[in-house]
Computed example of a mutant assay.
Amino acid sequence: MIDPLPVSRPCLFGKELEYVEQALRSTHISGTGSFVDRMEALVAEAAGTCYAVVVSSGTSALDLAFEALGVAAGDEVIAPNFTMFAPVAALLRRGATVVPVDADDTWNMDPDGVEAALTDRTKGIVLVHTYGHPADATRICELARRRGIWVVEDAAEALGAQLDGRPAGAFGDLATFSFYANKVVTSGEGGAVVTNDPVKAARLRALRSLCFGDSWAERFVHTGAGFNFRLSNVLAAIGCAQLEHLSEALASKRAVAARYRQLLGGVSGLGLPPESARVLHSYWVFGVLLPSGRDRRSVADQLWASGIETRPFFHPLHRQPSVPPVRGAFPRSEQLSNRGLYLPSYVGMAERELNRVVHAIHRALAT
Rank of each mutant, 00 (worst) to 15 (best):
A161D: 12
D164L: 09
P167R: 09
G169K: 00
A170D: 12
F171A: 04
D173N: 15
D173Y: 09
L174R: 07
T176A: 14
S178R: 03
S178D: 11
S178H: 08
F179E: 04
Y180H: 13
K183Q: 14
K183T: 10
V184Y: 06
A192S: 12
V193K: 11
T195A: 04
T195V: 03
T195W: 04
D197H: 08
D197C: 13
K200E: 12
A201W: 06
A202G: 13
R205E: 14
A206L: 14
L207A: 07
R208P: 05
S215N: 10
A217P: 02
E218T: 15
E218A: 13
E218V: 01
E218S: 14
F220S: 01
T223I: 08
G224H: 09
G224C: 15
N228E: 11
R230S: 12
S232M: 02
S232F: 00
C240I: 10
H245T: 02
E248A: 13
E248C: 08
E248Y: 04
A249P: 06
A249N: 07
L250G: 06
A251S: 12
K253D: 00
R254F: 00
A258Y: 06
R259P: 01
R259M: 11
R261F: 06
L264A: 04
L264R: 03
V267G: 04
V267H: 05
L270S: 06
